[in-house]
């Protein structure tokens, strides 16, 4: 029984880790720009797809992973410059959010045209039998997911707390007008937030690819799950978003034996309940920028 519980817990935390990386992308862009980027899931798809294609072409894994993350970061920059930058000031925030939905449909369509609809398998990072951990059987790739997420979270924390760019991004999230007054350009910070979110999302895609395979439409559901995680955490609260994503992962994992078909519906049920009962997220506070 404890083994079974541990199994659900490990699966839940692994799922939640991927959602957490997506959720952090939402939080980063939302905090800096006020826009909810519904193309966030496409960064995961791009990361998974690029890494898979490169690895299957014989590129060494670390190089492929790096190229995939850089590619998605570049995609983030292009999305900002082409689709969003011309709209700043002319379009309301709701309009900007609509644009991101359009971008996500476009990216998915382009991915379908370029890479087709067949799932592309990717070998696990370290092949070998699963490992037993606290009575649960854990695949080696799941450990890669957990470790990568942990390292990424630590790196992000250091980045936001100690670097000039991280500090500028936070300042822009706290008070955009005051940020301009000290010489921080909100447009540049918006661009930086899209690049950073592209990279974070793609990293999730790279480690996830060996588990789910890469498909052109994998970003849709992952993006929505990450969004639910971010909303659970209060949308502008990075540790809250990680916690919200992990909670969602655990809930889904716990619901799987009851009905795996309704697993996805559960996330949205949770979203509805939270939005009605605690619109500021599980951890208090109000919806609003000011986090990072």
């Amino acid at each position: 029984m404890t083994g079974e519980l541990a199994q659900y817990a490990v699966t839940g935390v692994m799922l939640g880790s991927i959602y957490a990386l997506v959720a952090l992308g939402f939080v980063t862009i939302y905090s800096v720009t006020g826009v909810i980027n519904f193309a966030q899931g496409e960064f995961v798809m791009l990361g998974a797809m690029l890494a898979t294609i490169l690895v299957n072409d014989g590129t060494p894994l670390p190089l492929a992973a790096l190229a995939a993350v850089a590619g998605a970061a570049l995609a983030g920059a292009l999305i900002h410059e082409i689709a969003l930058r011309p709209a700043w000031r002319r379009v309301s925030v709701i309009g900007m959010i609509m644009i991101t939905i359009g971008v996500s449909v476009a990216v998915r369509g382009l991915a379908l045209l370029a890479w087709g609809s067949d799932p592309r398998p990717m070998p696990a990072f370290t092949p070998g039998p699963p490992i037993e951990l606290l009575g649960a059987v854990v695949t080696r790739q799941a450990l890669w997911v957990l470790a990568t997420t942990a390292v990424a979270l630590a790196a992000l924390y250091v980045f936001f707390q100690t670097t000039a760019l991280g500090r500028a991004l936070r300042a822009c999230a706290v008070n955009p007008t005051a940020a301009r007054l000290v010489g921080i350009s909100p447009r540049r910070m918006a661009l930086a937030s899209f690049v950073l979110s592209g990279a974070i999302g793609a990293l999730g895609g790279v480690v996830l690819a060996p588990i789910t395979f890469a498909t052109y439409d994998m970003g849709l559901m992952l993006g929505l799950k990450g969004f639910v995680g971010a909303v659970l955490g209060g949308l502008a609260n990075p540790p809250g978003a990680v916690a919200g994503a992990l909670i969602l992962g655990l809930l889904e994992s716990a619901a799987t034996p009851i009905s795996s078909a309704y697993k996805d519906a559960l996330a949205f049920l949770v979203l509805i309940v939270v939005m009605i009962a605690r619109p500021g997220g599980l951890f208090g506070g109000s919806i609003g920028r000011g986090g990072l």
């Binding site: 500090r167 300042a171 706290v174 008070n175 007054l181 000290v182 010489g183």
Partner: peptide
């Protein structure tokens, strides 16, 4: 209009942001 959720030192360093 200080950066309320950041420390006094961080506020001061942000003041010198463009000199970084």
């Amino acid at each position: 209009q200080v950066f309320s959720t950041m420390s006094v030192m961080e506020n001061l360093l942000l003041g010198a942001h463009h000199r970084m």
